[in-house]
Structure formats: C-alpha cells, structure tokens
Simulated assay, not measured.
Amino acid sequence: MSKLSYKKLFKKMIDIDMKNTGLMEQANISRSTFYKIKNGENVTTDVLLRICNVLECDISEIVECVEE
C-alpha cells in the first residue's frame, strides 16, 4: 500500500532556511493542517498548491508517493 510522504517539503524548507511559522503564514495554513503534514496525514491539494506557490516549486518537489 502506498502513502504520501512530505519529507521533500521539510528538506526544501531546510535548504531555503524557512521556518515552520513562516510557511504557515505565507501559505495561509492553519497550525492543525501543518501538523497533519508533519505527521504524514492527508491534506487537500489546495493546501499543497498554496505551499508550491510560496516555495515557487512543483508539487513533485514537496511530496512523493512511498510504499508503507
């Protein structure tokens, strides 16, 4: 079974020196939604696209499908 992994997102944030709160503010993401991402839970594509807009990247650069 596959699931989504957000490891790429957190690596990208480290690479550009962006803090969690900075991403939440700029992408207009609630704390609870951010913690869903942090815990590997599902979020809407709208949230992922807002993150992509802030980071100026493609969705494949922040999320990947991995086997459990």
Rank of each mutant, 00 (worst) to 15 (best):
M1A: 14
M1V: 06
S2E: 01
S2A: 04
S2F: 01
K3Q: 13
K3L: 08
L4Q: 02
L4Y: 07
L4V: 05
L4I: 05
S5W: 00
S5P: 01
Y6D: 00
Y6P: 00
K7M: 05
K8Q: 01
K8N: 00
K8V: 01
K8Y: 00
L9S: 00
L9W: 02
K11D: 13
K11S: 07
K12H: 03
K12V: 04
I14M: 12
I14R: 06
D15E: 11
I16S: 04
I16Q: 15
I16P: 02
D17N: 12
D17I: 06
M18T: 07
K19L: 08
N20M: 09
N20D: 10
T21K: 15
L23N: 11
L23V: 04
M24W: 07
M24K: 14
E25C: 13
E25I: 11
E25W: 12
Q26W: 12
Q26A: 05
A27Q: 06
A27F: 12
N28T: 09
N28S: 14
S30G: 10
R31S: 12
S32C: 06
T33N: 03
T33F: 04
T33S: 07
F34E: 04
Y35G: 03
Y35C: 09
Y35V: 09
K36L: 09
K36F: 13
K36V: 08
K36P: 03
I37Y: 02
I37G: 00
I37W: 01
K38N: 13
N39T: 10
N39W: 13
N39S: 11
N39A: 10
N42R: 08
V43Y: 03
T44F: 08
T44W: 03
D46A: 05
L48Y: 10
L48D: 08
L48C: 14
L49C: 15
R50T: 05
R50N: 09
C52K: 04
C52G: 11
N53F: 01
N53I: 13
N53V: 07
V54C: 13
L55D: 03
L55V: 12
E56N: 06
C57K: 02
C57V: 09
D58K: 14
D58G: 14
I59L: 11
S60H: 09
E61G: 03
E61Q: 09
I62S: 15
V63Q: 08
E64K: 04
E64Q: 14
C65E: 07
C65H: 04
C65Q: 15
V66T: 14
V66S: 13
V66P: 12
E67F: 06
E67V: 11
E68S: 10
E68M: 13
